[in-house]
């Protein structure tokens, strides 16, 4: 366990000056700023909206982008980035000859990649809530203060996080095995396009394909209530849909299989 903590801290130390780490902070910041700028400059367009609709509209800028292409691409990039640090510096041989178990080295790296995705999505939730509240102060005519969806936002982003773990585990392994940029990125990109297409066409088996999960997660996030009761007054998030379970299962299986593949593979 000590080896794991040391390795994890070292991952942070190594990456703290790289785009891989800063991307996790800048991406949510920039997109939330963009949403903020739209609502701030064009506030007159939104004054007539109901508070709930307003929040949904506001948060869908980030959610929509992340739920389609951005989250899979970002996940692919993170998986590449944490492994590329070692490929570029030719340091696999050094980290695997440290007096630390291989499980700890491999596990810490994977968990660090998971942490970066989590950080990014947590900041998305945080910035959305923060900028929404800032808007309600700066533009009182927008009725941001009359509705609250902090919990739901956190749930949705947590669901997105869970739905990205399948992709992350696959891309992590690909990036670990292949030193170059094009192979894991190219494969990941093609798979993402396929996934997004499958999910947007509502293909019934898209929940089985990890690259479709973020988009499936967004489309299945609203709990289907009793429609006879009229318009929705309260958003209820359906967190554990079957696509999320598939994503988690893939993550666990690929993570464990990855360790044995790495063990077998000679360290260059």
């Amino acid at each position: 366990m000590k080896g794991f903590v040391l390795s994890f801290r070292s991952e942070f130390y190594k990456s703290r000056k790289t785009m891989g780490f800063w991307g996790a902070i800048l991406l949510p910041l920039l997109i939330s700023l963009l949403a903020f700028a739209i609502f701030f400059t064009k506030s007159e367009k939104f004054t007539a909206m109901q508070p709930m609709g307003l929040w949904v509209q506001f948060s869908m800028i980030g959610l929509g982008m992340m739920g389609t292409l951005l989250l899979p691409m970002y996940t692919i990039f993170i998986a590449y980035s944490v492994n590329n640090v070692e490929h570029k510096a030719d340091t696999w041989k050094t980290i695997f000859s440290l007096p630390i178990s291989r499980w700890s080295v491999y596990g810490a790296k994977f968990v660090y990649a998971v942490f970066l995705v989590f950080l990014c999505l947590a900041l998305f939730a945080l910035f959305t809530i923060g900028f929404g509240n800032l808007l309600s102060t700066l533009k009182p005519e927008l009725k941001f203060n009359e509705y609250h969806m902090e919990v739901q936002l956190m749930q949705i982003y947590f669901k997105l996080f869970l739905s990205s773990l399948g992709i992350l585990s696959i891309q992590f392994l690909l990036s670990l095995l292949w030193a170059d940029f094009l192979k894991p990125m190219g494969l990941g990109f093609v798979a993402t396009i396929v996934g997004v297409t499958a999910a947007s066409k509502n293909w019934e088996y898209s929940y089985l394909f990890p690259y479709a999960h973020p988009m499936v997660a967004i489309t299945t996030m609203i709990k289907q209530g009793d429609k006879a009761r009229g318009p929705v007054r309260e958003l209820q998030i359906d967190m554990f849909t079957k696509d999320v379970y598939v994503s988690l299962a893939i993550a666990v299986v690929v993570f464990i299989a990855g360790y044995f593949i790495v063990r077998k593979k000679s360290v260059k």
Binding site: K17, K88, A89, D90, T91, K93, T94
Partner: peptide, 11 residues
Amino acid sequence: SLIEQPAIYHH
């Protein structure tokens, strides 16, 4: 140990 090229993080 030092194997072949030194393993150094350039950044």
